[in-house]
Amino acid sequence: MTPPEFERFQESAQGSGVLFYYAGEFSPPVIAAAADSLKTHLATEDASGPAKRKLFSTFVEMAQNILHYAAGTPAADGSPPAPRGAIAVGRGNGEGSAGHYWIVCSNPVDVDYVERLAGKLDAVRAMSLEQIKQSYRAQLRNAEHAHTDSVSRGAGLGLLTIARDACAPLEYSFAPTADPSGRTTLFHVKACI
């Protein structure tokens, strides 16, 4: 990237209201450092305490989801793939989004999980806030589920936590990845706070 290209990259980020952006490997120390950096930044933002708490919570849930579910290619020596993904936080500046924050993340997922993920997202998107809270309570009571479902550790509580704090239904999409095997697709989720 040339310096003028980098300048345009930064201008574009600024134009979209980006406050924080990370792309790369996700690990517990990386997430802890990123969360801490975001928290420091939020302290200077002119937003209510609950809005900051919701933004921070959504960031942690999304980042930890990437850590647990991002699909990758195993290393040449057969060791498990390092989860990779991207996450960005910003302030809305368009019509209707001013005064709100947005947070968006993406990570590759196995194509076999697309239907299951879309089903979960669609179900949560259709719920009212009261239904989200009810479903959250039911999942919390049903803690045993975490041990019987190896695909969805945590019983979808993370997704419900994100949905509960969002001011609009979650948006999601799947996009092709550069993965030549065609086994993965890029999963995006966006929450507005």
């Binding site: 942690v60 803690a143 975490a146 945590g154 509580l157 993370g158 936590t161």
Partner: peptide, 14 residues
């Protein structure tokens, strides 16, 4: 608690 993630709420429930 000022903040708790969803994974830890399971621990609290226990």
């Amino acid at each position: 608690l000022q903040y708790i993630n969803s994974a830890s709420t399971m621990g609290l429930r226990s």
